[in-house]
Design a protein around this nucleic acid. Structure first.
Lengths: 251, 251
DNA sequence: CGGATTCTTGAGGTACCTCAAGTGCGGTGG
DNA sequence: CCACCGCACTTGAGGTACCTCAAGAATCCG
């Protein structure tokens, strides 16, 4: 929450961008790379627990996640919180704030995060000069929509057990796809309170539900984290299968 | 559901497009209008109840809604259905199908609909030749994302009464914004089964909840339709306020 | 007029909630 | 070093919001 945990770092070149090394992401043409390098205005470090965006605020920046985990959420006036989606390396943050007047959701860092910073203003020139990148932005927005569709199906129709299984299968799948699990701690860095606020369940019931999954051997709960042991079993319980992955655009 | 209720109509010019006459939508430049006219490949009439897209299918077309109501939904293997969002005049259908391999939701017509048909293939040239229209597509995808965020908050955190109030306030607001209420029948053309599948509630409980709203005088339920009598009251119950409207892009 | 669909209402069940207490761990300060 | 605190997780007991089953009334359609 503390603003002082946000700090801007040195202007590292895109050439050493950890995302470009990842085969899950698509390559830029040299011209595109050059444009993005200029578009980019710096790097930001956000400590775990830091607020990156607040609902209702205006923003002159947008970010691409380089490392770390975060989440998007909305709240009701009385404090009820709904987590909308999680943010992993390669994900863009704040596109809504760049297109509309203000953000209508908040973003918080789950772990320490490294973010690539872009100015909001030259966004339109991106569409003018590099139609391919404009296309990518539409692609990115559409992909987020797909994920939200699936979450809505989950919260609206699935039982507590199915929902929990879906969420962890989903996060596990995404972590693998952005190659954060193999390199990093191998566990998903969330608390049961996060799971509860994602699934629309109480913390108590979330705990009992996760316990069931743990005794069935499909996952293991650690302190403030979860390790998925049997992803196919979780997918079967949730009646969910991940979509086929294609080379993702980013930035 | 019957395919024979889908029929392609004559190629009416964009010049008489009912959306362009609506002040809620933004104007095209003459060049953009000319491009869109060529991009457009015809018009489609879909009868009430017709399936326009099916989850998992591939599509070579995308549509913009000219008149009528529809809805997007996903289902689980055992038949549970989640309605994701409603489709009104000016809304685009099938963008996901154009960007990804296949559709991951279905679309069905709620009333008779008139749709403007576009080919999927020349979509990229839209980004190349008219950056402004490419920007608009990103805007449109982002707006859908905003709506889904709010729905997710609703289904995950709001009580049955709040959810119902939110949904009807939301639909009422959208109908006004696309000017379908004043001209048309003035009522929202859905059944209580649709409301139930949107809110993640059973039909029985949905009925009892809507009844409460009806006796409090905020709405009236007609046969297969709903008339909103006191939109501000619904918004207060739901703890929701519509975002400020700006001139919307379309096509 | 009959059949299908939608809406309505009651009665009983259950999945999830709230309240309440207790454990274990990591961090902080004396 | 230990005492303390706060946070995350755990577990039990009782309550309630919503569900399922069932049946009836109203409306539309062929």
């Amino acid at each position: 929450m503390q603003e002082d945990r946000l700090r801007f770092g040195v202007h590292t070149a895109c050439l050493v961008c950890p995302l470009r090394a990842n085969p899950n992401f698509r390559d830029f043409t040299p011209e595109e790379l050059e444009f993005v390098r200029n578009f980019r205005s710096g790097e930001l470090h956000a400590g775990a627990g830091t607020a990156i965006f607040n609902e209702g605020s205006q923003s002159s920046h947008l970010y691409t996640t380089l490392t770390g985990w975060g989440f998007r959420y909305k709240t009701l006036p009385d404090g009820r919180r709904q987590i909308l989606n999680y943010i992993l390396p390669g994900d863009m943050i704040g596109l809504q704030g760049a297109l509309f007047e203000e953000m209508n959701h908040s973003v918080e860092a789950l772990t320490d995060m490294r973010l690539c910073v872009f100015e909001r203003k030259p966004l339109f020139s991106l569409f003018e000069k590099h139609p391919g990148l404009g296309y990518d932005l539409t692609w990115i927005a559409s992909r987020e929509e797909c994920i939200l569709d699936e979450h809505l199906l989950s919260v609206g129709q699935r039982s507590a057990l199915e929902r929990a299984a879906y969420l962890l299968a989903f996060l596990h799948h995404r972590a693998l796809a952005s190659a954060t699990l193999s390199t990093d701690t191998r566990s998903i860095p969330i608390t049961q309170a996060h799971v509860a606020d994602t699934l629309g369940l109480s913390i108590v019931h979330t705990n009992k539900t996760l316990r069931k999954l743990a005794v069935s051997g499909t996952l293991r709960w650690l302190d403030r984290g979860c390790e998925v042991l049997d992803a196919p079993a979780l997918q079967r319980i949730a009646k969910w299968t991940p979509g086929k992955a294609t080379a993702r655009p980013f930035l």
